[in-house]
Simulated scan of single mutants.
Amino acid sequence: MTDAIPTNSAVVFAYHSVGVHSIKVLLARGVNIALVVTHNDNPNETIWFDSVAALCAEHNIPTLFEPEPEPLFEAVAKLAPDFIFSFYYRNMLPVPLLALAKRGAYNLHGSLLPKYRGRVPVNWAVLHGATETGATLHEMAAKPDAGAIIAQTAVPILPDDTAHDVFGKLTVASEQTLWDAIPKLLAGTAPRIINDLSKGSYFAGRKPEDGRINWQQTAQQVYNLHRAVAPPYPGAFTDQNGHRFIIKQARLANSPKANLPQGLSVVDNVVFGLCGDGRALRINELLFNGSLITASQLQQLLL
């Protein structure tokens, strides 16, 4: 007598807090996770999110860290999973690998597809002043974020939300989306909605240099940049008087400050950043050489 092969088995590619919460959903819904593939943490990156590796160790789930393509393909082929899932895994999965999933391969994406396809969708949505985003479970295809949509959950982006704030909402939205969709995927009754790529746009990744402030832009544009890259992301920065400053926390000023020069200034012991439309950001926390500086310290550096 041989052991029965587990049904509803899955190979999961995962990273970040969304990866952790999504694996927990699969376990709670009775999916048999045969293998998790994840990333090694980058020592040059601020790791503010939950650890997939730690969760897998806790649950004794076999785990591979960034394996080479050929041994990875062989490992997944041997497991012959029903499903392949990708939860904030940072690499595209090749089509031959996806084809190893007997009942489909699915990805969780941090936007309301087809909007904001591609990299760092939360940051792009905040940068562009979007008032809503969400989580989408979709089929994986040769092109990124192009497969049929299975389920979506929307979340609001409030006027002062940073990308970090929105990511917290998306983590919950991803969990809810997956929780609702898994029973339908297991039963073979999940809907497949056409992902009309003509109604959205694709965005590439962002580099630290993309956080440089252009003070000629409007105050809302500069504020959106700050919100999109505020810590724990690298932060919006400006070079002034030979020094680099990073905005940690700011708000739009209540009244115009057109009498100030563009860029950073100190007025009545308050730091402002004047923008091209005569409006300003009131900067409540400013970083210099990795530490917070006061308005009086900034004033001395700007002399």
Rank of each mutant, 00 (worst) to 15 (best):
W215K: 03
W215D: 04
Q217V: 00
Q220I: 09
Q240C: 07
H226N: 12
Q217R: 13
V229G: 06
L225R: 11
S255Y: 14
R227I: 07
G242L: 08
F245T: 06
N224A: 11
V222C: 11
K248W: 07
Q221W: 00
N254Q: 14
K248Q: 15
L225V: 06
H243Q: 13
F245N: 06
H226A: 05
W215Q: 06
P231D: 01
H226T: 12
A236N: 02
S255M: 07
N241H: 11
A219R: 13
G242E: 07
T238Q: 15
Y223H: 10
Y233L: 15
R212D: 01
Q249V: 07
Q220D: 14
Q240A: 06
Y233N: 09
T218N: 04
Q216P: 00
K248V: 14
A236P: 02
V222H: 08
Q217L: 13
I247Q: 02
R244T: 15
L225D: 05
A219G: 15
P231R: 05
F237N: 12
I246N: 06
I247M: 02
T218A: 06
N241A: 15
Q240L: 12
N224E: 08
A236L: 01
A236F: 01
A228L: 06
R244F: 10
N214G: 04
P231C: 03
A253C: 04
Y223N: 08
A228W: 01
Q240T: 11
V229T: 11
P234T: 11
N214E: 09
V222F: 10
P231I: 07
F237S: 14
G242N: 09
T218P: 03
H226E: 02
G235W: 07
N214Y: 00
K248N: 14
T238C: 12
D239V: 14
N214P: 01
K248Y: 06
D239A: 10
S255W: 07
V222D: 14
A253M: 01
R251N: 09
N214H: 10
N224K: 09
I246P: 00
L252H: 09
T218G: 08
I213A: 07
A250Y: 00
V229R: 03
V229I: 13
W215G: 00
D239I: 15
S255T: 12
N224H: 15
Y233G: 10
I247C: 03
A230M: 05
Q221A: 15
A230S: 13
H243K: 09
T218H: 05
A230P: 00
Q220F: 01
L225Y: 05
I247V: 12
A250T: 15
F245R: 02
T238R: 13
L252P: 01
A253W: 05
Y223E: 02
Q216E: 06
G242M: 08
P231L: 05
Q221N: 12
H243C: 08
A230W: 07
I247N: 04
A253S: 09
A250N: 11
Q221K: 10
I247D: 01
Q216T: 07
P232I: 12
N224R: 14
D239W: 06
Y233C: 08
N224G: 04
N241P: 00
T238N: 08
Q217T: 06
N214Q: 12
A250K: 08
Q221L: 03
H243L: 03
I246G: 00
L252N: 10
R212T: 11
W215I: 02
